[in-house]
Design a protein around this nucleic acid. Structure first.
Length: 590
RNA sequence: GCGCCGGUGGUCUAGUGGUAGGACAUGAGCUUCCCAAGCUCAUAGCCCGGGUUCAAUUCCCGGCCGGCGCACCA
């Protein structure tokens, strides 16, 4: 797929952002004192606050506002869970290195592409090595022979042992989703066995990436916010009307495969109508995700939904769309919206001891006639000896298949090629009416899965601004008040006990009002404004001599983006600021 | 995992076979000071290991970490 070339300014933005993130405490590489580890990042004070606010915003929208329930499952689960989920097999790559050019190739792909083997992935390693030698397979890059090269497996899951010894292997979950699926039998009870219902989880997931890249965007430990929405595929429909008018930028598979085609601007309603989004449930969640992304500060000019190409779909997904954000001219995945159908629940149903189904009651109980047998064993036993049970099985099958066989005085039963006749009265044959209230079905799962770290990065990147104030260059983060780590900075204009005393009081008042406040009395006032600009604090309050000299106690409130200032009474400062934060009041309207 | 490039205070960076200089930031103080002001002082650095050498931050090898490309991203 062709991508826009990364523009120079964007690259610079990215570099500056990473530098700012380190310097100001948004995020930085972990364990730096020990040389650092690849793919692990620590969110500093600002970053942790921002991330927490983003998670809260997600929780409000996808758990609370949708009436879904949130859980918090362990990050380590035993091996059988991942046998069932398929991660043990499909997360396992076979790699073979070329002795000449050093290229690393998927051994299973090399085998499948050049032999009649179709599912090389399922072959044991020694056998794959044998096949490579036997067919004298060559390196796809430089054509050097690969025979004799070791095939190594690499599973992207972090392995560990549960308890002492290594008899009980476990893995760090590679997606939070499994923690939800595994607990389905209990979760459905909490949902009172009623579909549809949704379960969310915000938590860490782990993938031992071969090559972590691009700072926080591809790490080995990351945070996901996932919703597993369980539906009855035949009965449940989403409230599409509520999102029909949401404008979206879509990049369907067809456009991706067509030279010269690009994204299309449409609405959720029209896209469903036109069959562009095939799954209405996926469409619904795209419809609520878009405005949510906008609300936390993703630039909608650098945002789109892209449909997965058939080849890149997961082993479970029927149709899949990604939310993507543009960074440095490249699109990165922010979320995946997949209809996982009944894949996960069926697998866990099959592999575990529990039932991963829901009882669907019919509108009207169905009455069916059922032919059954209840053979007289005191007759069959002596008559057939050790074959008696086989005869019973045959009778049961026959009753279901062809009840007319029991119409006469006797019934014929096939036993090891021989036909036996026995009296119908000894079979206990009867046709009864049975009432069936419903059936057990395996729900389908719609999964919106959000990457939190990548979103935080995107929000920061899209918020990065440079401008000029009074002839001086300025860097600031145009963060939404809802997610900004700090909402207001409070300063005494200069070092002065009287000013500091008033400022201290204001800090206490604002914190009482539930606002996130920082206090700073160090250095020139302009420098303090710039410090707050750089971490994206929307407002600053300054206590000056007018505050303590005039009759009415007032302070200046300064807005980050415009640097405009207004003089406001201290008395209702907390209420005014809270209104602004909650979006009920505009600074410019005060 | 492979290839190329790189790693110097908190951040950015100069430089060197004889252990380092700047800028910004940070802290203390002075200047009645609303947009990175000035002055004084202070804190703080050559990624790790091995080799060559009298001497290595510098040269060589290996590792770790980062950026980019390939592969990978269920």
């Amino acid at each position: 797929m062709s991508e826009d070339a990364a523009s120079e300014t964007d690259v610079q933005t990215s570099e500056k952002l990473v530098e700012l993130a380190k310097r100001r405490g948004y995020f930085f590489q972990s364990s730096g004192a020990y040389g650092g580890v690849g793919g692990f990042y620590t969110f500093g004070p600002q970053g942790a606050a921002l991330k927490g606010n983003v998670e809260d915003a997600w929780r409000d929208r996808f758990a609370v506002a949708e009436g879904n329930m949130e859980i918090d499952a362990p990050t380590i689960m035993p091996e059988p869970v991942f046998e069932a989920s398929g991660h043990l097999d499909t997360f396992d790559d076979m790699l073979v290195d070329c002795p000449e050019c050093g290229e690393s190739h998927r051994a299973d792909h090399v085998v499948e592409d050049n032999t009649e083997y179709e599912d090389a992935e399922s072959l044991p390693i020694p056998e794959v090595e044998e096949v490579i030698a036997e067919y004298e397979l060559i390196c796809p890059s430089c054509s050097a022979g690969l025979a004799g090269q070791a095939v190594e497996t690499f599973n992207l899951m972090f392995a560990t042992n549960i308890g002492p010894g290594d008899s009980d292997p476990g893995y760090m979950r590679p997606e939070t989703a499994q923690g939800i699926f595994v607990e389905f039998p209990r979760l459905k009870e909490y949902a009172r066995n009623q579909l549809p219902f949704g379960v969310t989880q915000i938590g860490r997931a782990y993938r031992n990436e071969i090559s972590p890249r691009r700072s926080i965007i591809r790490t080995r430990e990351f945070t996901q916010a996932e919703l597993e929405y369980f539906i009855d595929p035949e009965e449940d429909d989403p409230d599409l009307e509520s999102v029909a008018d949401v404008d979206v930028t879509l990049y369907p598979a067809r456009e991706q495969n067509t030279e010269g085609s690009s994204e299309i601007e449409t609405t959720i309603g029209e896209a469903v109508e036109a069959g562009i989004i095939g799954d209405e449930w996926v469409a619904y969640f795209l419809g609520i995700a878009k405005p949510w992304y906008e609300s936390v500060g993703v630039d909608m000019d650098r945002f789109r939904f892209r449909q997965h190409l058939s080849g890149e779909r997961s082993h479970y997904a029927a149709d899949c769309w990604d939310a993507e954000g543009k960074i440095d001219g490249n699109w990165i995945e922010l979320a995946g919206f997949a209809n996982r159908t009944d894949y996960d629940l069926s697998k866990h149903d099959e592999y575990s001891d529990d039932r991963f189904t829901i009882f669907r009651q019919y509108d009207e109980p169905k009455t069916v006639e059922r032919a059954t047998v209840d053979p007289d064993m005191s007759y069959l036993g002596p008559e057939f000896g050790g074959d008696a049970q086989t005869v019973v099985d045959e009778l049961e099958t026959l009753a279901e298949r062809d009840r007319s066989a029991f119409d006469g005085e006797t019934v014929e039963v096939e036993l090891e090629g021989e036909t036996h006749e026995l009296p119908v009265e000894k079979t206990g044959f009867s046709v009864d009416e049975e009432t069936i209230a419903g059936e057990h079905i395996t729900p389908h799962v719609i999964e919106p899965s959000f990457g939190v770290d990548r979103l935080v990065y995107t929000v920061l990147h899209h918020a990065y601004r440079e401008d000029e104030v009074a002839g001086e260059e300025r860097t600031y983060l145009d963060l939404e008040p809802e997610v900004a780590p700090t909402f207001v900075g409070v300063f005494p204009l200069q070092s002065d006990e009287d000013l500091e005393a008033v400022a201290d009081e204001i800090v206490a008042d604002l914190r009482d009002a539930g606002l996130s406040v920082t206090y700073d009395d160090s250095g020139n006032i302009g420098r303090r404004y710039r410090r707050q600009d750089e971490v994206g604090t929307p407002f600053c309050v300054t206590v000056d001599y007018e505050t303590i000299e005039e009759e009415e106690t007032t302070v200046t409130v300064r807005e980050r983006d415009t640097t405009d200032q207004k003089r406001l009474p201290v008395e209702d400062l907390d209420e005014t600021l809270a209104e602004i934060r909650d979006g009920d009041l505009e600074f410019s309207d005060i």
